[in-house]
Design a protein around this nucleic acid. Structure first.
Lengths: 168, 168
DNA sequence: ATAACTGCAAACTGTTTGCAAGCGA
DNA sequence: TCGCTTGCAAACAGTTTGCAGTTAT
């Protein structure tokens, strides 16, 4: 369905520009300054669909402005997650992953392909129900949920090639 | 329900002894040696219900045998997870948690209390349904699921004290 | 005997931080 | 100007590893 695909891309572009704007407002509200380095980092974060690590973000940002330092990247990431525009994730690797699609759909979860390590996002309303159920039973107020599925790729098994692409 | 509780404890004790035995068989099968330090670590791991960190395991093991070193603990943990008797978990903290109840119920999930860091286990059949659903939709065969809930403690809010105990 | 195992301490990796200089509001 | 921000490098925390001596089989 190529039509839907194009529409999604268009919607995503809007969402991204909106996210940049929201983050700038977030900085202003907190009396923080919009420096050039921060602008470059923001552009880098919201111009990609992909999940990234701190090191990848540094590398990408430096392509746009080589003066961006590791320290600034590490100091900006907590601001991005605090603003709820980016989501921090742990997949059991020694470094963290960051998800720039978070404000688009804050309740999405992730499936990791064991074959190609691709991360695929999905939504399920049922999870939210379960979440509240469990919390009530155990005496907690659930703040956030995180469902990670590890899976093997059906197309790999059939055709010998793993053709999954996240968000495309 | 005290009866059920006592029965559970009894069952758990059996499971634990069985787990120790299984791990020893695992070592033998891999031509690895059953040293005194490993024995102490195994006893420590399977004599607790609690989820622990590497550092906690070291501390507890040293109470039984002060010669156990940090290096040996860190070298034994991968063996324990490889044997599928212990489950490694990531809660977004800078250190990993280990779950000695894994072989007992490999499909349980976890809720972590933001207030006291207690980890509570729970089971939900509904998750397995969702899991298969999602997998089919995306073209994957789901191998394992991992649902983590972050929550705040209701009893803390009410009484000012957090009295949750996992598995008790 | 001999290969696996140990403790120690140094190394490693991802992340954080103190500092003096720089720059946005 | 004021004080938030920056890059740098050193510090930090959890984990891993090289080594020389030890121990299970």
């Amino acid at each position: 369905m190529p039509k839907r695909s194009r529409k999604n891309k268009c919607v995503q572009l809007e969402v991204r520009e909106e996210a940049k704007q929201k983050f700038i407002e977030f900085l202003v509200k907190k009396d923080l300054r919009i420096t050039n380095q921060r602008r470059v980092i923001i552009d880098t974060v919201f111009d990609t669909n992909e999940h990234f690590t701190a090191e990848q973000l540094l590398e990408w940002a430096r392509l746009k402005d080589s003066s961006v330092s590791r320290a600034t990247v590490y100091r900006t990431l907590p601001l991005l997650t605090e603003s709820n525009l980016v989501h921090e994730m742990d997949f059991g690797k020694p470094y963290k992953f960051y998800d720039p699609n978070y404000s688009d759909s804050p309740n999405h979860n992730h499936l990791i392909c064991e074959d190609c390590e691709k991360i695929v996002e999905f939504d399920s309303e049922k999870i939210e129900e379960i979440e509240q159920d469990i919390g009530q039973k155990l005496g907690f107020t659930v703040k956030s949920q995180n469902l990670q599925l590890s899976a093997s790729c059906d197309s790999l098994k059939r055709s010998g090639a793993c053709d999954n692409k996240p968000c495309s």
